[in-house]
Amino acid sequence: MQVRFMIIGLAFLLVPNALFAQEVIKPTLIIGTPEAGEFTTYKTLYQGKVEARGQFLYIEYASDKPVEVLIAPFRTEGEYNPRDLVHAHLEPGAEQKFLIDVSGSPQWSPWAASYFVWFVAEDDSTNMAVQNMESSKGAMYMLPVLALQQFFTLERFQASVFHSLYGIYVLGKPVIPFIGIFVVFLCIFFFVRAHKKHTSYSLPLFILIGGILFFQLRSGIDMLRYTMQHIQSWNESGTFEQLGASYSVARILEQEQATHLQQDITAYVCSNDSDYYTKAVRYAAYPIEIQYAPKEDVTLTHVVVHHSDYTFENDILTCKTFSGFARLLEEFADGARLYSLLPDSL
């Protein structure tokens, strides 16, 4: 009876009270997702450092409109890695209270002491006010579960440029050195034993091959998950990570060229993103000329607005330094908009 009481009591102490009271939001990794580019066009409401230690970030706020929050544990004093950013969508409301589970970030560990927190919204009319933001520790017994979850978390990479892979992190530490050293140690141990006992060396060899295959199976699981995600995304919306709908944009431009036989069309991609999207459109639409910035000596016929601030009022499109009369031709699944410029602006 006493033991049972102690177990229940211990469990009560370990499980944070906040868990019973608040809704828990599970944020997702942002790198390699279409939102990563989209948020660059959003307005920053607040960004800064929050001293906190634990699995959850408790937040009380009020907002008129939805807000996006991006969080990453600081690796060193004042330095975070954008690859570690997790994203959560916060609903509007007068008195909102949420617990954000930050353990989804690869760099998260129970010892992480501070976080980079960045609130953004589509525009600055949210009237957001954060009343309280503090850490809330998770249950200690959950650590192995969290570690296992982190080990099997899909490793994010950018399909557009995969020069290298970040690696799997568990509780803020890279896993590869642990597995590598463990396999090497086991192999040496069994090799020495086999050598002393004059038995077969098969076991250390099998451990080595098994270790390599185990790790490769782990990354193979990610490859299968990526295959599913990418194929699904491409089939359903014709978009795919940072590639977005660039191929669809190019198809419409080609159709436009076919209907404007007397004139070569030239399009300007107005984007706040890296030049990747522009290059993708340029490849897919070749030989149609695609420009990064409008040139004075070249007459533009089309403008693609992608992840950029713009206005379109009274048939006047304004995007960065460009301004002219335009007609909306098409809106794409990735949010890009293709405008055909009217003769007045040509």
């Binding site: 295959l213 490769q216 990418h230 194929i231 089939n235 795919f240 990570e241 590639l243 993708a280 490849y283």
Partner: peptide
């Protein structure tokens, strides 16, 4: 593992267009 490699690479080659920065 070889089947996984094949599924991943074949699916991306046959069903998804060019995506790499250097290819563009």
């Amino acid at each position: 593992l070889l089947s996984i490699s094949f599924i991943f690479s074949a699916a991306h080659t046959f069903f998804i267009p060019t995506v790499q920065f250097d290819s563009f």
